[in-house]
């Protein structure tokens, strides 16, 4: 008599195996993409916070003029590679009143610096869980290095 107990179909084994192989092969890509998404979300949040703080006149170097500072847009551009990391530059497009645009180059102004620094702080926090005071322009994660810049719109 043929024993049929405790048996699964070959199709189920094949499908399960296929899913396992797919999961293993896509795992590094998922990790990499997840890291990118996390960094970009953190950067946007930090930049928005920086714009809000500067809009209310707050800065670390003393009081400044108030004004509506807005993060209008942001872009992500691959600029280089650093070791095994891809270097991406996050560019923030900001609008601000003329009184706060003390230089035609956004990155040379207090507003631009605050927005960029807050973005870097938030990226750093997203991966380390720590707030740090000053960060160089370039936050390293496992797969990427993120730099920041800004432009007026």
């Amino acid at each position: 008599m043929k024993d049929k107990r405790g048996q699964v179909s070959v199709e189920l084994i094949l499908v399960t195996g296929l899913i396992l192989v797919m999961a293993i092969t896509t795992y590094p890509y998922i990790l990499k993409q997840q890291e990118m998404n996390k960094a970009v979300a953190a950067a946007r949040e930090g930049a928005t916070a920086g714009a809000a703080l500067r809009g209310m006149g707050f800065s670390t170097t003393g009081g400044n003029e108030m004004g509506i500072v807005r993060l209008e847009d942001m872009t992500l551009t691959k600029t280089n590679t650093s070791g095994e990391r891809d270097v991406y530059e996050i560019t923030f497009y900001l609008s601000a009143p003329d009184s706060l645009k003390t230089n035609s180059n956004c990155w040379m102004t207090s507003v631009g610096n605050t927005v960029r620094m807050q973005a870097r702080r938030h990226i750093y926090y997203a991966f380390t869980g720590q707030w740090v005071d000053n960060l160089p322009d370039g936050v390293n994660t496992t797969y990427y290095r993120f730099t920041t810049s800004c432009e007026w719109v």
């Binding site: 006149g57 670390t60 003393g62 009081g63 400044n64 108030m66 807050q118 702080r121 707030w131 740090v132």
Partner: peptide, 15 residues
């Protein structure tokens, strides 16, 4: 005031 998201550094505004 001190900002948590800025490692407790002091941020100042003037009125």
């Amino acid at each position: 005031r001190r900002l948590r998201t800025s490692n407790d550094s002091n941020w100042t505004t003037t009125i």
